[in-house]
Design a protein around this nucleic acid. Structure first.
Lengths: 217, 217
DNA sequence: TCGAACATGGGTGTCAGCACCTATGGACGC
DNA sequence: GCGTCCATAGGTGCTGACACCCATGTTCGA
């Protein structure tokens, strides 16, 4: 028997983190050796601690789990990453895969499924949450075959900044005043965001920002 | 030593539920005897099971924790209710108190705090999450002294219907077509909603609807 | 060094959101 | 019966959102 897999657990809710830790530590082949409150801390922990698997929540302050996943898979390509989230959402799923995650698990699954997902991730097998494999994987493969696996252009830092302010309810003029640019430029960025994300208006931008944890409802 | 307090735990995420259950069952004076996936099931469980304390998440499908709390405190006024949520939000806090909850705890607290909150709720002492007592309680008492503890007019069924559709991103005309009324009437209801809830525009209505669990992000 | 990507900003036009105003008809309680 | 609340609906007017058009300066990698 080999040593248990060393896990980093990142979730901004201490209660959830502690509960999941109890579940995982109960397994002989899994052990949680680090915890993180947010994405930035998760990256820092992964740099300083020897871990095999990172379990990342999506909605976290400072840096979302998806952002952390992108950074971690760039810094340490051999690290296994599991996204653990409450959002049963196709767009997230694709973003998670693009960010280098090998698994996507909902918080609504049973604990046995989480443990199975951890083991699959460690063996480098993809694991998608139960009930979604068929449609989601099929769509993903369809896109991949068309050479179109990563269709979405990444949004820039400035755009993310604008996105956050738009989603918080500020008008173009207000945002312009905050960032010391013209309202026109704000609208330019907003239009680019709508186009890149395939959304219709500020309202959908808001829901998107809430989904990815950029702002609180 | 008396028998442990019997607890109902309602959260739509099985993982979270299981983790919290492990935390609570570890305490000799607390025992989780029932679980629920959503607000409606929580009410059903509370009817059929003998419990002392209900721990309710806010964001749950079918019926939010706040709605369930209102119903439970009407059905069984002697039942202790604890709201456990990820939302550090003043409006929620007041709504929780109005709904009959004696405690409001964030998921970001440590497990010791959750256990303490359970014990406080069972002893019928109010428990507010650490760090917020001063401002929140003060505001609440200020309002109560002005005889203004429940300032908000309740929104009607029709308004809630409109709210949901607005928050989902439909235009007035679309909503009118869906409900077979004129766009003008939709705007009338929307204006009433804005006024009753003290909000500024559709975007804030959307965030409100997400907060109270009326729609998903 | 040349092009691509990015941030900047201007113009024009349409339309939906929202704030005011008005009114009517039904239900319900006092 | 009379007032109150609710749902219905119309008018007017302003303004922000959004879709198109356009150009300029910087930076950075091929």
């Amino acid at each position: 028997m080999t040593a248990p897999a060393r896990i980093l657990l990142a979730d901004d809710h201490a209660l959830v983190r502690h509960g999941v830790r109890l579940i995982l530590d109960n397994e002989p082949d899994l052990t949680v050796v680090a915890e993180a409150d947010d994405g930035a801390e998760a990256v820092a922990q992964a740099r300083s601690t020897d871990i095999d698997l990172a379990i990342l929540d999506i909605a976290m302050p400072r840096q979302t789990g998806l952002q952390a996943a992108r950074e971690l898979s760039r810094l340490r390509p051999e690290l296994h990453i599991l996204i653990l989230t409450m959002y049963d959402n196709e767009q997230y799923f694709f973003e998670a895969l693009k960010a280098g995650a090998s698994g996507y698990v909902l918080k609504s699954v049973a604990d046995r499924d989480l443990v199975a997902a951890c083991r699959a991730a460690i063996r480098d097998e993809p694991f998608i949450y139960p009930g979604a494999e068929t449609t989601l994987i099929r769509k993903y493969l369809d896109r991949a075959q068309q050479g179109d696996a990563l269709p979405a252009k990444p949004i820039t830092e400035r755009e993310e900044e604008i996105l956050k302010l738009v989603a918080e309810g500020h008008t173009s003029k207000e945002i312009g005043d905050i960032l010391f640019i013209s309202a026109k430029t704000v609208e330019r960025h907003r239009a680019n965001l709508l186009q890149k994300l395939g959304l219709r208006d500020r309202l959908e931008l808001t829901r998107y920002a809430i989904r990815v944890g950029l702002i609180e409802p």
